[in-house]
Simulated scan of single mutants.
Amino acid sequence: MSHPHWPATQDAVRADIARVGASLFQRGLAHSTAGNISVRLTAEQGGGFLITPTDACLGFLDPAQLAWVGEDGSALAGARASKTLTLHRRIYAAAPDAHCVLHTHSTHLVALTLQGVWRSDDILPPLTPYQVMKVGHVPLVPYRVPGDAGVADDVAALIANAQRPLRAVMLERLGPTVWHDSPGSAMALLEELEETARLWLMTERRAEPLTDSQTEDLRSRFNAPW
């Protein structure tokens, strides 16, 4: 059964990943060879996962060279998979509704971890209604060396123990990892999160959060994940 927000074929999914990568790069949300994107394929699309190659620049992805791996992570075709494949697979296993995982080293979010986040279980206070409605809680994952398999354990535990469904985590000194039902939806979530971090830093972290009653109103009206 095809996902309602996805193109029907694997080639179309490959093109969508490249489109999202280029958009993030062109707008400065991704840089150099930092960041990665993966998609969980339907059976009709061949099954398994597509993921950007190791050390690939998101701005110049070749759709034909995206790594195609099986459910067990074994290589099926394309270039060598990103070293974050283990993390992506654990997120898919822990969050059944996730169909795209996206990671960047977005400037303002990384700067926030260098300055100090709001709280370890929420890197940002609830500042804007769309942050509350579209993003929800974002816990901090303590620093580990890039590619460390322990990050996957950390993130899987956060997803399993969350009181409300998580859509994002923040890797200390590295950047956000977000997941959603399609590459476009994941990109929109990342944009909202990065913009909220930028606003909080611009206001010198003095902005008053939304009140509990205001966030509860957003939950009741829009099923906000906060």
Rank of each mutant, 00 (worst) to 15 (best):
V155G: 13
A156R: 13
A156I: 08
A156K: 10
A156T: 09
A157I: 05
A157Q: 11
I159Y: 13
I159L: 15
I159E: 06
A160I: 07
A160G: 10
N161L: 11
N161M: 08
N161Y: 08
A162H: 11
P165K: 05
R167I: 01
V169R: 07
M170R: 10
L171T: 14
E172D: 09
E172S: 08
R173T: 15
L174K: 13
P176Q: 09
V178G: 13
W179F: 14
S182F: 01
P183C: 11
P183N: 11
P183A: 10
G184P: 06
S185R: 15
S185P: 06
A186M: 08
A186L: 08
L189Q: 05
L189C: 06
L189V: 05
L190T: 01
E191P: 00
E191N: 05
E192Y: 08
E192R: 07
E194H: 03
E194C: 01
E194N: 00
T196F: 09
T196V: 08
A197Q: 07
A197M: 10
R198D: 13
R198E: 15
W200C: 00
W200M: 01
L201Y: 03
M202D: 12
T203R: 03
E204L: 15
R206V: 06
A207V: 03
E208H: 03
P209Q: 00
P209H: 04
L210H: 07
T211Y: 12
T211P: 11
T211L: 12
S213Q: 04
Q214G: 07
Q214K: 08
Q214H: 06
T215Q: 05
T215M: 02
T215I: 11
E216W: 00
R219A: 10
R219H: 07
R219T: 09
S220F: 01
S220W: 00
R221S: 13
F222Q: 02
W226T: 10
